[in-house]
Amino acid sequence: MKREFIHITDNNKHRLMSDSGFWHGSTNKNSRDKMKKILSMAVLNELTERQRICIVDYYLNGKKEKEIAKELGVNSSTVSRHIMKARDKLRHIASYYVN
């Protein structure tokens, strides 16, 4: 299975998931806004505290895994695992809302 990663920056934060069929060609602003709200709520309510810290620091704050690991006092592979599990959980939650 081909995986594309989520890289959120100021220029592309409107694209919450990969382009590989996620939106099914939709450019509907309402659909995007609804998905942003769903994923924002999922980040707040469905992820563990460590997953939330790791994914927000990595994708929204642009920190490297090693930098996050140093701040948390854990190994960088642990940070990588938290990011991967959080991304998988968010993708799973989002799949319920895609046609």
Results as ranks from 00 to 15, higher is better:
14 H>D: 15
79 V>M: 08
71 E>P: 09
34 K>Q: 01
37 K>T: 09
44 L>I: 08
76 S>A: 14
1 M>S: 15
69 A>E: 12
39 L>A: 02
12 N>A: 07
91 R>V: 04
93 I>Y: 05
60 L>N: 05
32 R>A: 08
76 S>I: 07
32 R>I: 02
6 I>M: 02
52 R>P: 13
70 K>C: 01
93 I>F: 03
58 Y>W: 09
40 S>N: 07
56 V>W: 04
13 K>A: 02
96 Y>F: 07
86 A>K: 03
66 K>D: 14
34 K>A: 01
27 T>I: 03
45 N>V: 08
24 H>N: 11
90 L>T: 11
5 F>I: 11
71 E>Q: 08
31 S>D: 14
91 R>H: 07
59 Y>I: 12
69 A>S: 11
15 R>H: 15
41 M>Y: 04
76 S>G: 07
95 S>I: 06
36 K>T: 04
3 R>W: 12
60 L>W: 01
55 I>K: 12
22 F>M: 06
48 T>Q: 12
16 L>N: 09
95 S>A: 15
56 V>G: 04
61 N>H: 10
88 D>T: 07
81 R>Y: 09
38 I>V: 08
26 S>M: 01
30 N>C: 10
9 T>R: 05
81 R>C: 03
9 T>G: 02
54 C>Y: 09
90 L>M: 06
98 V>K: 01
88 D>Q: 10
80 S>A: 12
76 S>E: 15
4 E>N: 03
64 K>E: 09
70 K>E: 11
20 S>P: 04
38 I>E: 05
57 D>L: 00
37 K>S: 10
89 K>N: 13
67 E>S: 07
19 D>F: 08
92 H>T: 12
88 D>L: 10
15 R>N: 14
12 N>L: 07
86 A>M: 09
68 I>N: 06
81 R>N: 10
99 N>L: 14
2 K>R: 12
58 Y>E: 01
41 M>F: 05
6 I>S: 09
53 I>M: 10
79 V>K: 03
76 S>F: 11
96 Y>T: 00
75 N>K: 15
55 I>L: 08
63 K>N: 15
7 H>M: 13
83 I>T: 10
12 N>G: 07
8 I>A: 08
53 I>E: 12
58 Y>H: 15
99 N>K: 08
87 R>C: 10
96 Y>V: 00
41 M>T: 13
10 D>R: 09
80 S>D: 13
89 K>S: 12
40 S>H: 05
44 L>F: 11
95 S>P: 07
48 T>W: 11
6 I>E: 00
29 K>N: 13
11 N>H: 13
47 L>P: 07
48 T>A: 11
13 K>L: 00
94 A>I: 02
58 Y>F: 15
39 L>S: 03
81 R>M: 04
75 N>M: 06
50 R>H: 05
95 S>N: 12
